[in-house]
């Protein structure tokens, strides 16, 4: 695993002339878990999207360093695994086909095949891998998102509401993964669940930022 650091430097997001959050500055190093909490609509998901590089901030910068070398877009993405309610899988494809597509597009070799199988088993959807995703329940879709996010073994795992839609078994699998990720990389997540917040080394309460100015 490579040494990774994520830095957020004075990030501000203004949407429809409303300041969602202002001057968000922090840094997370490998072996740490960073949590973002705050009420619904406070901008947790928006902040995560900016940190993942899929949304531009109104001002400020996000930088990702691997072994002290700054990684720039688009080389940024292979280091990130994201699970979010805004990220969906292709419903007309089966779980297996979705993961195959991701593997091919990420240029992963055949050694990823056994890891795919492991992930599908770990998240309890191996027996349903040939079913089209449109026939999945919301919990199964959430489990598949975890498989997709972890497929390339990302050093930075970003989770938006990690336990949403999951049953007890699913929550346990996710928490095991969160624990593992914290040991071998960086874990960044947004939640209001107190059980999930126990994983965090640092908690950023987005309510404390200057919002609505």
């Amino acid at each position: 695993m490579k040494m990774l650091t994520l830095k957020s430097d004075h990030i501000t997001k203004i949407y429809n002339r409303k300041t969602i959050f202002k001057n968000v500055t922090f840094s997370v190093n490998e072996g740490n878990a960073f949590a973002i909490t705050g009420k619904n609509g406070s901008g947790k998901s928006t902040l995560l999207k900016i940190l993942c590089g899929v949304l531009s901030p109104s001002s400020g910068t996000v930088s990702l360093s691997v072994n002290d070398q700054q990684v720039l877009y688009p080389e940024y993405y292979p280091h990130i695994g994201l699970v979010s309610p805004y990220l969906n899988m292709y419903e007309e494809f089966s779980a297996e086909e979705n993961l195959q597509f991701i593997k091919k597009i990420r240029g992963l070799d055949s050694s990823a095949d056994s890891f795919t199988e492991e992930l599908l088993k770990e998240f309890g959807i191996y027996d349903h891998r040939k079913k089209e995703v449109r026939n999945y329940s919301s919990g199964m879709k959430q489990r598949l998102k975890y498989c997709a996010a972890l497929l390339h073994n990302p050093p930075l795992l970003v989770l938006d509401e990690p336990a949403s839609n999951l049953d007890e078994y699913g929550i346990e699998a996710v928490r095991n993964r969160m624990h593992l990720q914290k040991q071998k990389g960086v874990l960044l997540f947004a939640t209001n669940d107190k059980d999930d917040l126990r994983f965090a080394d640092t908690i950023l309460d987005i309510r404390q930022l200057n919002i609505g100015e």
């Binding site: 688009p74 990130i80 979010s84 969906n88 899988m89 991701i102």
Partner: peptide
């Protein structure tokens, strides 16, 4: 509409 654009954005660069 299907919410897969974010998936695609994270997978590869815009030119592809």
């Amino acid at each position: 509409e299907r919410g897969t654009s974010l998936t695609l954005r994270l997978l590869t660069d815009s030119t592809s």
